[in-house]
Design a protein around this nucleic acid. Structure first.
Length: 152
DNA sequence: GACTACGCTATCC
DNA sequence: GGATAGCGTAGTC
């Protein structure tokens, strides 16, 4: 049986270190971590370059393949989130309408997003233009949205 | 059954 | 008009 190995790297970014987990060229996880940075191979290095370009406003979309682990419902939400363009925002309510569910459930799924930045859940805000919440805290959410707004 | 990264409504100042 | 509280909601653990 053919086996794909899951590889882990820790990537250094402007807003802190991220744990990157990938299998071949599919990103499985991209989450904040306190561990020290280390790069294991060229693919991780490549991702680090793209992430840093993103943070300096030079890059506004990622072309990596992602393979997030989650329930059918979560994947449905994440797929919808992927459609939100750079510099734009969408409300939990809008996403809920598109896939016929409730905003509460959308927030629930976003909180379990394993690929931060690649699945741009920071672009989802409350209906009344309040930021809502974020895995890394609303400050980071604010930074990301401002970055995208200014770089556009 | 408890817990949400929400949204609406009622009810206070 | 604002702040706050309560409740409905749908999905997850």
């Amino acid at each position: 049986m053919k086996q794909n190995y899951i590889i882990t790297s820790i990537i250094k970014t402007k807003i802190g270190n991220f744990l990157l987990e990938f299998e071949k060229d599919n990103i499985l996880k991209f989450l904040p971590t306190k561990r020290k940075a280390f790069l294991i191979n060229g693919f991780a290095k490549n991702i680090e370059n793209h992430i840093n370009n993103y943070f300096s406003g030079k890059e506004n979309s990622f072309s990596f393949r992602i393979k997030p682990n989650g329930t059918n419902f979560q994947r449905k939400v994440w797929l919808e989130v992927l459609k939100i363009k750079y510099g734009e925002t969408c409300s939990y309510f809008d996403i809920a309408n598109k896939i016929s569910t409730s905003p509460r459930a959308v927030g629930n799924a976003c909180a379990k997003n394993p690929c931060l930045l690649f699945i741009p859940c920071h672009r989802i805000i409350n209906k009344n233009n309040v930021l809502g919440n974020y895995q890394m805290g609303i400050n980071i959410k604010k930074i990301l949205l401002n970055l995208e707004k200014e770089a556009r």
